[in-house]
Simulated scan of single mutants.
Amino acid sequence: MSRAFLKNESADDPVVIPARAPLPPGATNYVTLRGLALLQVELIELENERVLAQQIDSEDAERTRQLALLTGRIANLNQRIATAKVVDAREHPRDEVRFGATISLRNRATDAKQADQKLTIVGVDEADASQGRIAFTAPIARAMLGKRVGETIVLPAKQGTNALEITGINYEE
């Protein structure tokens, strides 16, 4: 059977360090205060993992592979933290969508009784669509930047376009 169909990795396989969420070329690595704190917690956890792995009294190839993986992940994370530019959303104008804003949106094509959708514009490492946190690089975030309550953004949809009205802007973290 081909190795491509096996999930087993051997200690001799090259170490592949998972990539972090990409930033567009030349883009500044904006982060919220929460986002920077999450990166710092992740770094502490990885460093603790590496210390534990180093304490294992063994020189086997799997331990070496694990240490190389952790060292690579720590290096990537240190690079991301070093390039982070913290944006304090509390300093933004309250009536305009900027980085760090939580925006309430109402789909203009659906029933008005439907609850507003809330999205928060965050850094790429903090983004989690299932939690309503979208990266500032996402098309919907770019469409909302600079808008105010009452304005509408139009996005492409499967069947034409989707018009979303901004019903609220909040900057509480």
Score class of each variant (00 low, 15 high):
residue 52 L to T: 14
residue 41 V to S: 12
residue 79 Q to W: 10
residue 51 V to E: 15
residue 73 R to W: 02
residue 75 A to P: 04
residue 39 L to Q: 04
residue 53 A to L: 08
residue 45 E to L: 12
residue 66 Q to L: 14
residue 79 Q to F: 08
residue 41 V to E: 13
residue 41 V to Y: 08
residue 64 T to V: 12
residue 72 G to V: 03
residue 74 I to W: 00
residue 60 D to M: 04
residue 54 Q to I: 06
residue 34 R to T: 14
residue 40 Q to T: 10
residue 57 D to F: 10
residue 37 A to W: 07
residue 78 N to F: 03
residue 39 L to W: 03
residue 68 A to V: 06
residue 60 D to V: 00
residue 66 Q to F: 11
residue 81 I to T: 05
residue 79 Q to A: 13
residue 62 E to M: 13
residue 48 N to G: 15
residue 46 L to D: 02
residue 36 L to G: 02
residue 41 V to F: 10
residue 53 A to V: 12
residue 33 L to P: 04
residue 83 T to L: 12
residue 39 L to N: 00
residue 59 E to A: 14
residue 67 L to H: 02
residue 77 L to I: 06
residue 82 A to M: 10
residue 33 L to A: 09
residue 33 L to M: 12
residue 71 T to A: 06
residue 74 I to M: 04
residue 45 E to A: 12
residue 72 G to W: 00
residue 61 A to I: 05
residue 47 E to D: 08
residue 47 E to A: 07
residue 72 G to H: 00
residue 69 L to I: 01
residue 32 T to H: 02
residue 76 N to S: 09
residue 44 I to N: 12
residue 54 Q to H: 14
residue 72 G to Y: 01
residue 46 L to F: 07
residue 61 A to D: 07
residue 43 L to Q: 07
residue 45 E to N: 14
residue 57 D to E: 14
residue 68 A to P: 03
residue 53 A to S: 13
residue 79 Q to L: 11
residue 73 R to M: 08
residue 49 E to S: 14
residue 66 Q to K: 15
residue 38 L to M: 11
residue 71 T to H: 06
residue 77 L to M: 02
residue 37 A to D: 11
residue 76 N to I: 03
residue 33 L to W: 01
residue 72 G to P: 00
residue 44 I to V: 15
residue 59 E to L: 13
residue 31 V to A: 03
residue 75 A to M: 02
residue 67 L to K: 01
residue 53 A to G: 09
residue 51 V to W: 08
residue 52 L to A: 15
residue 30 Y to P: 05
residue 75 A to H: 03
residue 64 T to E: 13
residue 37 A to I: 04
residue 45 E to Q: 14
residue 75 A to N: 04
residue 67 L to D: 00
residue 66 Q to M: 13
